[in-house]
Design a protein around this nucleic acid. Structure first.
Lengths: 191, 191, 191, 191
DNA sequence: CATGAATGAGAATTCATTCAT
DNA sequence: GATGAATGAATTCTCATTCAT
């Protein structure tokens, strides 16, 4: 309970002000406990940071999977995932910050987060290759494709995040999804 | 002279330990001057940070353009740029760190850096559309394509950066270039 | 408790070396706490400075009122106050320094301090006018009289402060009180 | 020449921002010379500070004497001096600051300044006693009177200085002069 | 004499962490 | 377990002063 509230408090503070400004004092105050209490649940500040991305990353992945569930497997579903991710970023401004700052402030967690997503893709693509919906290629190339897909996703998210106008954001999401879909369709299916 | 050595010292320290650990003390010591001297050339630490990305970003862009110069304009040249960028990241380990941490520690400079690259792409693509080598599309979509290309580049760089083995890196570069070329060819040319 | 000891430590340091030399390090050491502890009780150095004059000013005013209490109201009591003030300055060497340096280092507190004393006088004089013991005059003139009385007090204090010999000081106090009494008697009573 | 311009530059800076903020950098810049040049004319910052009050104090005393010259000697002339001083403070806002901050930042000069004025008064009063225009009294009492007169002057100046409205200031000067004249007339002449 | 870059000794302030209660 | 006062190391930044040119 207390632990959970410290974790969510940490997320709120980082979402609002970034890791650098997320002092134990602020986090404890936000969680409604004394500073000392923090150390009953986390070894140190870094320990909390390192749990934050897994925590919110899981929620994000669930939201994305939830949204993509009813799309047919394959490219359609992947495009849905892409769209769901962008929507999630649009609706959870703090998430993006926690995510991208993690590369700096919680590098281990960030690498694990990336690796989690990459291995999800890896499984999907292997399955797609097995069923012939995806061209046969080396593991190295698959890895590269995955990273490039992730990059498209991440930078579309950055584009959204750097736009403050609501309607423009909606437009960007629509355009980005369209572009992503075209690229995937054109290049990642077996003719 | 002193200013230049502070700037390069800053880059070295950030490359090695990140912006957060780049104290004035370390930077000044690396530059071989007294701490106070720092403030004869920069208003404060942030002022130095804000000059670092433009400084190394320019060098990187020059190296990339240099390498792409003798490729024919269009997709070929873009693939060359991609490759040159990855090579640059491979050979300048510090560059990647300075670049990606800038989003957190020098957001203004980072935005300018991204905008510089985006507007370079914008010009190129407009020209390609004018000569019919690129499908006609809305400005918004062009913007999205650019961001997704940038993302591919950035995450390919991240993949390289997170790999420590030299040969593996070379392999990743080759694969990533191949993948990037295929995607571009398949999706971004007028059939 | 800790707060109080920081406050009195601040007074001691300023009394001995002036506000300019009263570093947090010295104050904290004098109070017997770590430097960081200071900031648990005061927002910054200025915040402490701004509490010092009210703190010692109150004690001074109490001492003065205490001494003047058994004198008959009116000029007699005012002369007693004057004498008590000079004695207080004589016996509390630090007080004078904290007071006069405050005009520079804690201007707001100094203005409030002056205003406190001025309004005390204002009340007294209004009462004296109402009972006919004081000539009728405009508010502006009353204000001027008050300031000039304050000035007499302050410069008599300065004269004492700049004299190091104990006996000379006692002589100055006696003479100053006599002079003050004569001036008041001659000019500020209704004949 | 350079020395003079450094001196006046120092006065301007202190008048505008106070001694504490009067850095050598600002003073040298105001004087239009390099920082190093400062040390060709003054041993250190304090040396400049210690010359400032004598410098502007002299000008003030000259202005005051100039204004009082055509008044008949004795109380009338003293009241004129008082008025001239207040006018000087009114018209030279910086002067008051240089003067009162000197007690803190240039104590020796301040003491000398006070002593200069005191000894002027001493001579005048001795002469007045010799000619019977002033009651006979001990040297100690004379000294006390002088300090109290100075205090009246100083605090009337403070009252003016703390008032920002031009007209109110003029009113205060008139009232203060009137009050001062009454007090002097009532208490300091031989009946 | 003038210059102005370089110096480095402080100063204020922050904050993660500890620990006695 | 909870508390929150105390800690003190670390950091940024200022500025009087020096000195080689």
């Amino acid at each position: 309970m207390t632990r959970e509230s410290l974790l969510t408090a940490g997320c709120h503070v980082v979402a609002a002000e970034g890791y650098a400004a997320a002092s134990i004092a602020k986090i404890a105050e936000t969680a409604g406990v004394a500073q000392g209490t923090f150390y009953n649940y986390f070894a140190d500040r870094q320990a909390l940071f390192d749990e934050m991305l897994p925590y919110i990353g899981l929620r994000m992945r669930e939201a994305v999977e939830q949204a993509a569930r009813d799309a047919p497997p394959g490219l359609r579903r992947e495009v849905r995932r892409f769209e769901a991710f962008l929507r999630y970023v649009d609706e959870n401004d703090g998430f993006y910050r926690i995510l991208y700052e993690a590369e700096v402030f919680s590098p281990t967690a960030h690498r694990v987060h990336i690796e989690n997503i990459v291995s999800g893709y890896r499984r999907t693509i292997r399955r797609a290759i097995a069923t012939g919906r995806f061209p046969l290629m080396s593991d190295g190339k698959i890895e590269c494709i995955i990273y490039q897909l992730l990059g498209m996703r991440a930078y579309a998210a950055m584009q959204i995040h750097s736009e403050t106008n609501r309607e423009q954001r909606a437009r960007i999401i629509a355009d980005a999804v369209d572009v992503y879909g075209r690229i995937l369709n054109a290049s990642l299916i077996v003719e």
